[in-house]
Amino acid sequence: MRVLVVDPDPARAALVAEGLSGVDPLEVRHAAIFDEHEAALFEPDVVVVAADSPDRDTLDSLREASLANPRPVVMFVDRSEPGLAEEAVRAGVAAYVVDGLAAGRVRTVLEVAMSRFALMNQLRQDLEKAKADLASRKTVERAKALLMKERGLEEEEAYKLLRKLSMDTGRPLAAVASDLLAFAGVLKGGKA
């Protein structure tokens, strides 16, 4: 396991590393502040941020980093202001622990955070795929409707024609449907 510990306090960072003893293989790197470039070079499996209290700069950095390179992030803080836990979660933090940094808890918290991150990441991917599939279906339906109107075809015939064009060109059905709609728009004087 590769762990990046971000903490200005070396003693607290050592406590995190101590909590991971027995993990094999293990590589722990310590940084006083979060730097996405350094994190990307190290490629950690999990980032642990430990601090007295989370600051907005760190949360902003984590938010930007999670957009470009999502990875599980665990935050141990000594104290928290109202609303900061929610802000941390929105910044991509998988586990937010207040006043609970103890060597004996570190490994379990990291394992749960990594599992939760993997689950949430899979849900995000599934959602994006579902949205893309829905958009493709809408495009195919619009193309079928166009063929039905312009060529006087039944729905099944219009679908078979789209499917044949897809197979003949070796392109996905949605791409063929999208091209058909674009060409129809050009022929009617609309935008491509």
Rank of each mutant, 00 (worst) to 15 (best):
R2P: 07
V6Y: 00
G19H: 01
D24S: 15
L26P: 08
V28N: 04
R29Y: 07
R29L: 03
H30G: 01
H30C: 01
A32C: 07
F34H: 13
E38S: 12
A39P: 07
A40T: 14
L41V: 15
L41S: 15
E43H: 15
E43R: 10
D45G: 13
D45W: 13
V47D: 02
V47S: 03
V49E: 09
S53F: 10
S53N: 01
D55K: 12
T58M: 05
D60I: 08
D60E: 15
L62E: 02
R63Q: 11
E64H: 02
A65Q: 09
S66T: 14
A68L: 13
R71E: 00
P72C: 13
P72V: 02
F76H: 01
V77G: 02
D78H: 09
E86K: 05
V89N: 04
R90N: 05
R90D: 10
R90I: 00
A94C: 07
A94S: 13
A95E: 15
Y96L: 01
V97D: 01
V97H: 03
V97M: 05
D99K: 06
R105P: 06
L110Q: 05
V112T: 11
A113W: 00
A113D: 00
M114W: 12
R116F: 11
F117S: 00
A118Y: 04
L119K: 10
L123S: 10
R124K: 06
L127T: 11
A130M: 11
K131M: 14
A132P: 08
S136C: 05
R137N: 01
K138I: 12
T139I: 07
E141Q: 09
A145S: 10
L146M: 08
L147T: 09
R151S: 13
G152E: 05
G152V: 07
L153F: 06
E154R: 06
E154K: 10
L161F: 01
R163F: 13
M167I: 09
A175F: 12
S178M: 14
L180K: 08
G185T: 02
L187I: 02
L187H: 10
G189L: 01
G189I: 04
G189D: 05
G190P: 00
K191L: 03
K191T: 06
A192G: 07
A192H: 04
